[in-house]
Simulated scan of single mutants.
Amino acid sequence: MDAGAVAVLAGCAAFGGLLAVLAGAYGLRQARRVQRTGVRVEALVKRRPGSAPDEPAHPRPLLQFATEDDRVLEVVCPVAPSRRRPLNDGDHILVRYDTDDPRTVVVDNLERRGLERAFITAGALVMLLSLAMVAFAVATR
């Protein structure tokens, strides 16, 4: 493969890595902001409409809560249930919502920070790999 083709491939890989880093950083920033400035309320976990009681629950249930101005909202839970936190129908959990956009919620103690950090790490590794590809192409030229 000639150096020009390697440079194009490395550029595309670096761009993808940069997008992954930015997506992870944005997700962490949003979660921290809502956790710091959001309003804490209790939400009711609800089964998705149309699912039968004997069916397994949808991976992301609905959360119903009332805002400070007494609007009742239903939003899709931003995190999937786990063994540690099953999120069964009828459970009550604590969430924080953004006052500017109440549909942006963070479930207390389930912020998905690991996923965001994985995006940042994977993106940085792809960017380093693309730099190594260019360095190798230039060195073997």
Score class of each variant (00 low, 15 high):
residue 3 A to D: 13
residue 3 A to G: 11
residue 4 G to P: 07
residue 5 A to D: 13
residue 6 V to M: 08
residue 7 A to Q: 09
residue 8 V to E: 09
residue 10 A to V: 04
residue 11 G to Q: 06
residue 11 G to I: 05
residue 14 A to G: 13
residue 15 F to E: 09
residue 16 G to L: 14
residue 18 L to I: 15
residue 18 L to S: 14
residue 19 L to F: 07
residue 20 A to M: 15
residue 21 V to F: 12
residue 24 G to W: 04
residue 25 A to H: 06
residue 26 Y to T: 13
residue 28 L to I: 02
residue 28 L to D: 00
residue 36 R to Q: 09
residue 37 T to Q: 10
residue 37 T to L: 12
residue 40 R to L: 14
residue 41 V to F: 15
residue 42 E to P: 04
residue 43 A to Y: 14
residue 43 A to I: 15
residue 44 L to M: 11
residue 44 L to G: 02
residue 44 L to N: 04
residue 44 L to Q: 10
residue 45 V to E: 00
residue 47 R to L: 10
residue 52 A to F: 10
residue 52 A to M: 12
residue 53 P to E: 05
residue 53 P to H: 04
residue 54 D to L: 10
residue 55 E to D: 12
residue 56 P to E: 13
residue 57 A to F: 03
residue 58 H to V: 07
residue 59 P to S: 12
residue 60 R to M: 14
residue 60 R to Y: 15
residue 61 P to Q: 09
residue 61 P to V: 11
residue 62 L to C: 02
residue 63 L to D: 01
residue 63 L to Y: 06
residue 64 Q to F: 04
residue 66 A to C: 13
residue 67 T to Q: 05
residue 68 E to D: 11
residue 69 D to E: 11
residue 69 D to P: 03
residue 70 D to N: 10
residue 70 D to L: 11
residue 71 R to F: 07
residue 72 V to D: 01
residue 73 L to A: 00
residue 73 L to N: 02
residue 77 C to E: 07
residue 78 P to R: 05
residue 79 V to D: 05
residue 79 V to H: 08
residue 79 V to S: 13
residue 80 A to P: 02
residue 80 A to M: 13
residue 81 P to V: 06
residue 85 R to E: 08
residue 87 L to C: 02
residue 89 D to N: 11
residue 92 H to G: 01
residue 94 L to Q: 14
residue 95 V to G: 00
residue 96 R to S: 08
residue 97 Y to K: 01
residue 97 Y to C: 01
residue 98 D to I: 00
residue 98 D to S: 01
residue 99 T to Q: 07
residue 99 T to E: 06
residue 100 D to Y: 10
residue 100 D to R: 15
residue 104 T to A: 04
residue 105 V to G: 00
residue 105 V to C: 00
residue 105 V to M: 01
residue 106 V to W: 04
residue 107 V to Q: 00
residue 107 V to C: 00
residue 108 D to R: 02
residue 108 D to W: 00
residue 110 L to C: 11
residue 111 E to D: 10
residue 112 R to W: 08
residue 113 R to I: 08
residue 116 E to Y: 14
residue 116 E to R: 07
residue 117 R to S: 10
residue 118 A to Q: 04
residue 118 A to E: 02
residue 119 F to V: 03
residue 120 I to F: 02
residue 120 I to L: 04
residue 121 T to N: 04
residue 121 T to D: 03
residue 122 A to L: 15
residue 124 A to E: 07
residue 125 L to W: 15
residue 127 M to P: 02
residue 127 M to Y: 03
residue 129 L to E: 10
residue 130 S to K: 07
residue 130 S to R: 05
residue 131 L to W: 06
residue 132 A to R: 11
residue 132 A to Y: 05
residue 133 M to K: 00
residue 133 M to E: 01
residue 133 M to G: 12
residue 134 V to E: 01
residue 136 F to S: 15
residue 137 A to K: 06
residue 137 A to C: 03
residue 138 V to Y: 05
residue 138 V to S: 04
residue 138 V to E: 08
